[in-house]
Amino acid sequence: MLRNLMTAAAAVLISAGPALADWPEKPLELLVAYGAGGGTDVTARTLQPLLEKELGQSIVVVNRPGAAGEVGHAALADAKPDGYTMGILNLPPMLTIPITKDAAFKPEQIIPVAGLVRDPSAISVPGNSPFNTLEELIAYAKENPGAVTIGTTGVGTDDHLAMRYLAKATGAEFTHVPFASAGAARTALMGGHVSAAALNLGEAMPNAQEGKVKILAQFGPETSPLAPDVPTAKSLGYDVEMLSERGVGVPAGTDPAIVEKLAAAIEAVAKNPAFIERNKELYTEVSYMPTEAFQKHVEQLRKDYQAMWDESPWQ
């Protein structure tokens, strides 16, 4: 009943039908599946003014937090596909949530329009830690199974998955200590309450520059221009890749012409030096992916996560 009400409210909210040629002719909504002030929200608010200029219409950022991102992604999936509601897609949550439970949305209900930014997962230790390389940490964990405690940003997050697959790839045994947020995990790391923490590279970078933490490795596909000194796990010989990515999506059924127009506008923003510079300051890497490539990428990731889950569920 509540769902029906909400859908009804949303349906009433967006009235007029799509007039493709003139799209967009009224303000657009950009859904964010997390609360204001978080990483996804900052991405959306960095994108908003520049995208407004490209589309010539105002964009309202609407936060729909809840259920670790499920509520927001479901809101996007259920929105009227008239081109006036779009949302920031968070990977992997958009794909892992429907895998781990009977979620309120399916990935097929959302059309990925373009990839925007990415932030690889990374493993860090406190600044005064005896470990200086990933190899030392893993060797110690192998000798003393369970003695290495790794704080993460919660069960099922990209950081948790990175930790799990690192353990699997090396045969080392870690003790997983989940925290409620990146902030809490980071405080525990800096206070030396955990031996290491899996955090996104951008979340660990500011403290690394101050010497409060040491980033041993990151799990991106290649060295990040933001942190050229941090090696990738792959380059160290551990076959683990895990990153958090954000893109833009629209509900399934949206006119392909609108998707194309929107993708072009996002591309222009992604190539705007102001956008790139702002993201650099935020320690996130702009990595634009056009519609077709992004859709293929999302589909491939979905298969990978499903295979990983079938092999060994992470919760």
Binding site: L2, R3, P65, G66, A67, A68, E70, V71, A74, T100, K101, A103, A104, G154, V155, G156, P178, Q315
Partner: peptide, 16 residues
């Protein structure tokens, strides 16, 4: 700590 849902009773809105 575990990702399991408690006292949710299938109501998606309060799952978080």
């Amino acid at each position: 700590m575990t990702g399991s849902e408690r006292l949710v009773f299938g109501i998606r809105h309060i799952a978080g």
